[in-house]
Design a protein around this nucleic acid. Sequence first.
DNA 1: TTTGATCGGTTCATTATTTGAACCATTGGT
DNA 2: ACCAATGGTTCAAATAATGAACCGATCAAA
Lengths: 265, 265
Amino acid sequence: MGTVVKALSLLDHFSRTRPEIGLSDMARLAGLNKATTYRLLSELQQGGFVEQTGSGREYRLGPAVLRLAALREAAVPLRDMAARALQSLSDATDETAHLSLLQGDRLSMLSYAYSPRHGTRVTMEDAQVLAFHATSSGLAVLAFSPPEMIDRILSAPLDKRTEDTLTDPAAIRAVLAGVRRTGIAESVGGFEKDVHSHAVPLFDAHSRVIGAMAVAAPVARMTPALTALIRRELWQNATGLTRALGGFPPDGFAPDGFTAQEAAE
Amino acid sequence: MGTVVKALSLLDHFSRTRPEIGLSDMARLAGLNKATTYRLLSELQQGGFVEQTGSGREYRLGPAVLRLAALREAAVPLRDMAARALQSLSDATDETAHLSLLQGDRLSMLSYAYSPRHGTRVTMEDAQVLAFHATSSGLAVLAFSPPEMIDRILSAPLDKRTEDTLTDPAAIRAVLAGVRRTGIAESVGGFEKDVHSHAVPLFDAHSRVIGAMAVAAPVARMTPALTALIRRELWQNATGLTRALGGFPPDGFAPDGFTAQEAAE
DNA sequence: TTTGATCGGTTCATTATTTGAACCATTGGT
DNA sequence: ACCAATGGTTCAAATAATGAACCGATCAAA
């Protein structure tokens, strides 16, 4: 592993629950020598990717990432387009819609849209990391990921978030086969006990999966009629976003209950 | 220069006018060997910091920066950074420094820092609303606001706070032109009779003005030497804060009395 | 269709940087 | 006063970065 990826991987240890990390902690988290970690952090600091807090000596993400994000957004208005697609999806279903992006082996939430219709709704955190085995988005992405990645993910320990979380690799593989057939992933209570969610994967120009769009609703509200509505709207918005981003669904990618031919009409 | 900074500095060559860069171009821009550049870009790509465009083989900023930016934004509230910049500014000038934020058509004070050096000082009220035509902060913000907003503000009744307050729209427009040229706004006795203040606007990632940073001193203490000191320090702290927030000054934004070239040194 | 000048990407011996155990000086808790 | 942390530093040994030269592909002009 090159020095640069090592340095960049340090940044991955920052999270919503862990926004500041001390030198020793960082070295432990990254499994690197303290001196090495120090030098890498110093270089990241020079580049403005991390900075040290005024009071303590801990490190946190620096201002450079904001600048780059602004430039990225100017070049690829993914966020804008995602926001519009999510709004449309949320409006149509009156439930929470969200979009997650695959980065390496991690799936993280990019943005979301709530519906004002219901008092109860599924709420999301910014930049939340989604487990592959426990969320509909994770399953949607995993189903269309390369076999090596599936093996890697499923051979790691699978957290049992709720009593309904699937943790048996063989059972999950069976689910993935179904997702590949229908193009839609579903998760009932796998992440949060009362959440029923559907997800459809998003693809880039090379038909590689880049993330997923999902709708999450309270289990109590999930009637057959709502399920049908969500599936139809989710499918349209997700494939529309894939197209808007210049991506292509892989061959044979068809909506639940439709053949590829019917879908093309 | 370490390998990591070298890699990160590649990212600096992306800009709004140049969102995609080919390998050879990048090597030229960075003054590095093509092979080196390739390896660095590959490592950045592994980390998701750059990606290759679907069609061409050019590189552009990747999705990883979005995730980090979201975390940065959550981790570092504007308030903290403003507080530090204001403290530094107040320490350097031994006068009152304050920062205001534009919210809709209202400019309100976010925070301030006093200097302990002098017995007399300009005092501020929390969340005080600053008039656009009567304060240096207001003029700084207005000078870089959209024309419609300027029209809106100047067509409303303009309160004559003191005998020195400018209330003639045409006269104010003339002042704004000067502020746009120098990047610094000045107000002598416009808000409080004995206060002489300087202000520099702050910008967001889209080069839109979001507020202003200012230094206010009693008129009696305002010597040419202090003016020069304030202008220099204010400029540095304000542009520094803009950068720290991930913002970009608009094109041609230059400090009073300096050319863009001199400022770059 | 030949030529030549690009392009992105690759190779490998030489070189310079990264690495990590041990070591400071400080800090905070007992 | 003590101990166990912390952030930061050192330097010989190990390792990774470097760059000139080299691919094959693409494209424009001749």
